[in-house]
Design a protein around this nucleic acid. Structure first.
Lengths: 183, 183
DNA sequence: CCCTTATGAGACATTTGCGTCTCAAAGAGC
DNA sequence: GCTCTTTGAGACGCAAATGTCTCATAAGGG
């Protein structure tokens, strides 16, 4: 009988990814519960979004862990990372655009941690000679988010095949970051 | 006395780029006019967004024209394009995310034209041997939009210097699209 | 089998933004 | 100076979404 909070969050994420302006009622319907029950579990829309942010953070952290960013070449680590991030791509795309609205407010410290880990990966690639120095880790991090979002949307609209998207993202990002041996 | 429609549109674009959920009242204030006057010029929020889309389209077309996509190498053409697109980056970022909400509705044919021109550029690069074939023109087009958006936001939040952003975008995209001569 | 608890349905007030309208004031053109 | 047009300020009703509440009911545990 008891509602599965995690399942609610996931269906909310799926819906909001497709339509970021969905109402609480739509979110409730999508989760197969009533609006009242949704409100009992998440005090309000803000709370829901914050819970989704928390979920996104967890999935990101988990993906970073699974990817083993410290092992092997930075390129391969990046490839593994994109692959691991793929299931959360829709949610990340939602959060990435949503976060643009919080301009003033301080950024959630969780994201800072993720950013730092990503930046560290890119810096490692630079120091190992794999990646070029003129594209800053901060930019590459930002670009990773953007490309994941673009990928998620492109798949949603059928412009890119779902099975290809992680390859397309990895290759573009790695190719762009890579030092060129010849001119 | 008469309101400058174009100036209103531009300040609206600037505001909505920063906060895509701004109200009509905020838009009016930002333009230095009253909400009533704003309503006299744009029947409603939808009309305003459509006008912004029109403006974005025009700026895009103009940038594509200025860039001379047919001349020289595809790489250089792409570099010129990104540079020309830069002033419209914020507006494009807004429209790009906004368009995600119109999932069902048919895409504005203007964007299809732009997409086609961009895809043609990438295809030209492939056929000239500059760009790799395994990244589809459709994906590269999508990635261009995504990176422009990411760039605009990164600049807004101070994560990337404004003077560098067009270089960062070009280099990442070109580097990623480029065929590698060696492994 | 009873009792506790969570749920669904719906009513309700509140908020918020939208769109329309009116009226007075300011400006532009003649 | 007069008139026509446009603007600003604000009031007003409307619609949508939110958040709260009640009540009946279904589920589950002891």
């Amino acid at each position: 009988m008891s509602v599965d909070r995690d399942q609610v969050l996931r269906s909310a994420a799926a819906l909001l990814t497709r339509k970021s302006t969905s109402t609480m009622d739509e979110v409730a319907r999508a989760a197969g519960i009533s609006r009242a029950t949704l409100h009992r579990h998440f005090a309000g829309r803000d709370a829901l979004v914050r819970a989704l942010e928390e979920l996104g953070l967890q999935e990101c952290e988990a993906a970073l862990d699974r990817a083993g960013l410290g092992e092997g070449s930075a390129q391969d680590a990046l490839r593994r990372l994109v692959k691991q991030l793929e299931p959360a791509a829709g949610l990340l795309a939602f959060l990435y655009t949503e976060n643009q609205l919080f301009e003033g407010e301080a950024q959630n410290e969780g994201w800072s941690r993720i950013d730092a880990r990503l930046a560290a990966l890119f810096r490692r690639g630079q120091e190992s000679g794999e990646f070029r120095f003129d594209l800053t880790p901060a930019w590459l991090t930002e670009a990773l988010y953007g490309l994941i979002g673009s990928g998620a949307w492109a798949v949603q609209d059928g412009r890119v095949a779902a099975k290809d998207v992680s390859y397309m993202i990895s290759e573009l990002l790695i190719g762009g970051a890579r030092r060129r041996v010849e001119s």
